[in-house]
């Protein structure tokens, strides 16, 4: 086995794990998992974490951390709903994206200009931005009107936005300097700096992309639940992060960061949540079972990729 093939096989491991989980649950649910309606659900439920993950991937690739995704979802959908009420239909995405962009830029600037670790900044955002949304929203009901909801929940928009974003991110991530720099920063930030690349700019851009993607995910989430509430997006960032890491993206970032892994990871999580319901696993224990299966899936993927690696090494 050549090294190229080995690397390729390594990338496929998350897909295998996904396949294994799918097979297990479809067998256990006697095929109900793969019913048209449930596939629709799984896709539906995976869209927000995948979109947010597409952005967070840039940050993770650099070895940095962004746990502000959940609160950006709330903030962006707040502004989206406000904009729709104030200006109309078309304003939802621009307003949300602007909110996400500003948050991301702010995080990036604080991180690069003031050298505050990204985990610390985003943690304080989690604490404060949630409170800010609560303050702004108060007791008002901010609804997304039905036509808009139908639009966002409709297959055409949902799939085309998802496909568009995936394509754009695959392009930026794999075929432009920005993506390469983000991954290179994860490998060795100093090496990037010493090749004359403006690392700060790359970092700010990465946080901004993460913010924008979280905002777009926020609009879809808001459309799904009909509007904004103060708890919208609670621990959403953890779901996205699980998707990334379960898919096999290294926590330290670098060249191992791949879009396919993110998608596989997010699908795995949704599949798990859906599959357990289909198995009639109910109540508080579901959460525990989910935790155990997640751990098992990661362990499984690791063992498999290790054995592929060893076999290739032995040849």
């Amino acid at each position: 086995m050549t090294r190229g093939v080995k690397a390729y096989m390594g990338d496929l491991v998350p897909l295998f794990t996904l396949l294994a989980l799918t097979l297990f649950f479809s067998a256990a649910t006697k095929g109900a998992l793969l019913s048209a309606m449930n596939l629709n659900n799984i896709l539906n439920q995976s869209i927000p974490p995948i979109i947010a993950g597409l952005g967070m991937m840039f940050v993770v690739a650099m070895g940095a951390t962004d746990i502000s995704t959940g609160v950006v979802v709330a903030l962006a959908s707040y502004f989206a709903c406000m904009a729709v009420t104030a200006a109309g239909f078309w304003a939802a995405f621009p307003a949300a994206i602007l909110a996400g962009l500003c948050t991301g830029l702010l995080i990036g600037v604080i991180n690069t200009r003031f050298k505050v670790p990204s985990f610390m900044i985003t943690l304080s955002f989690v604490i404060s931005v949630r409170a800010l949304v609560t303050l702004m929203l108060g007791i008002q009901t901010l609804q997304i009107a039905k036509p808009l909801r139908d639009l966002f929940n409709g297959w055409a928009v949902r799939l085309s936005v998802l496909a568009g974003l995936v394509l754009i991110v695959v392009y930026v991530f794999n075929y432009t300097p920005l993506g390469m720099y983000a991954k290179a920063i994860g490998e060795n930030e100093n090496a990037v700096k010493y090749t004359g690349i403006n690392v700060s700019k790359v970092k700010i851009a990465a946080f901004a992309i993460s913010g924008v993607m979280a905002a777009i995910a926020g609009v879809f989430t808001a459309a799904r639940v009909g509007g904004v509430s103060t708890t919208l997006g609670t621990s959403f960032e953890m779901k996205v992060m699980m998707g990334l890491f379960i898919g096999g993206i290294p926590v330290s970032g670098g060249m191992g960061t791949k879009v396919s892994k993110l998608i596989a990871g997010c699908l795995m999580i949704t599949l798990l949540e859906s599959g357990l319901v289909l198995l009639n696993v109910s109540g508080a224990i579901t959460q525990g079972v989910r935790g155990l299966v997640l751990l098992a899936a990661v362990y499984f993927a690791r063992v498999v990729s290790l054995s592929i690696h060893n076999r290739a090494e032995a040849r």
Binding site: F245, V251, G291, V298
Partner: peptide
């Protein structure tokens, strides 16, 4: 298992 995931998984459990 990366400690992030181990921690989150165990928190769920």
């Amino acid at each position: 298992i990366p400690s992030w995931i181990a921690g989150l998984g165990m928190a769920l459990v």
